[in-house]
């Protein structure tokens, strides 16, 4: 009869949470408000500057150019990423190969392309291979290396393939050996184990590094402007050299920031989506 629960509130009386404590003005809070205020001031200043500097003739002249530059940038990144992904598979395979010599070659390739600046690699391919012009002409390859766009694609593909190979290798290594053993115990052939058991798990691990690599490539793609490819950065530099108007660079900054943020959010979404089965 004596059901003990005497501390429970009567049903007709709402349980009120204690009122929130007033947040004191600590030093951290003051500093935080001050810095956020500075940021706001900066953004407001930027917006006012861009509003005042708005000239319809400039927009009409350079707007379409920025658009074509943006398309060039996106095309470069997309092509290099896809080709690099294709090339990274044999590189990663040789890196993991038991054959010492093949492994050493793959290691040297990866070390070279990860250890030197992308700009130097691009110069080496675009200007450097020009030194072998007679030879290339003889082989009928000169038409390819004459064009800055092709050279940029080649340099970016080779560069990103080295990074992607390491991502792939790390991801495959991260799948526990037990997965291989379990699948072997079920009598699955090696190729099926790799494709159906290991790769799906590896790709989940690799997803985030892949996203970072694409963002790095997008940011790195700005350097093709130096070898006269008119991507977004190239168009920006051209517009600046004609108008000496600083807003050209600010618009480029806004566009790049939007691109990177879009990519980042897209990647967050993909990751949430393909790891649904892991959420508890």
């Amino acid at each position: 009869m004596t059901s003990g629960n005497t501390t429970a509130a009567p049903a007709n009386q709402a349980v009120l949470a204690p009122p929130a404590l007033p947040r004191p003005w600590t030093r951290a809070r003051m500093a935080g408000y001050a810095i956020v205020g500075l940021w706001l001031l900066l953004f407001a200043g930027l917006a006012i500057y861009l509003y005042n500097a708005w000239r319809i003739d400039l927009v009409e002249t350079y707007g379409p150019k920025y658009w074509s530059g943006l398309k060039t940038t996106l095309a470069l990144v997309a092509i290099a990423t896809v080709l690099g992904a294709a090339l990274s598979v044999p590189v990663a395979a040789s890196r993991m190969s038991k054959n010492r010599i093949i492994g050493a070659f793959a290691y040297a390739y990866v070390y070279f392309f990860r250890g030197t600046p992308l700009l130097a690699q691009t110069f080496l391919i675009y200007y450097g291979l020009g030194s072998f012009r007679p030879f290339l002409q003889e082989w009928g390859l000169w038409f390819f290396f004459r064009d800055a766009w092709n050279c940029a694609i080649l340099a970016f593909t080779l560069n990103t393939a080295a990074y992607q190979a390491e991502i792939l290798r790390g991801a495959i290594d991260s799948v526990p050996t037990g997965q291989w053993e379990g699948a072997t115990a079920l009598g699955l052939p090696r190729w099926i184990i790799f494709r159906k058991v290991v790769l799906p798990q590896a790709l989940i691990v690799a997803l985030r590094p892949y996203g970072n690599e694409i963002i790095l490539l997008l940011k790195g793609s700005a350097i093709v402007a130096i070898i006269t490819v008119y991507d977004l950065m190239g168009e920006t530099r051209r517009a600046y050299s004609r108008t000496f108007d600083f807003q050209t660079y600010l618009w480029a900054a806004v566009i790049y920031l939007i691109l990177v943020e879009l990519l980042r959010n897209l990647w967050d979404w993909i990751e949430r989506r393909i790891t649904r089965h892991l959420v508890r």
Partner: peptide
């Protein structure tokens, strides 16, 4: 500063 291309940051 992680979103801007390094080259653009330098110019800016």
């Amino acid at each position: 500063f992680r979103g801007l291309p390094e080259l653009l940051t330098i110019f800016l």
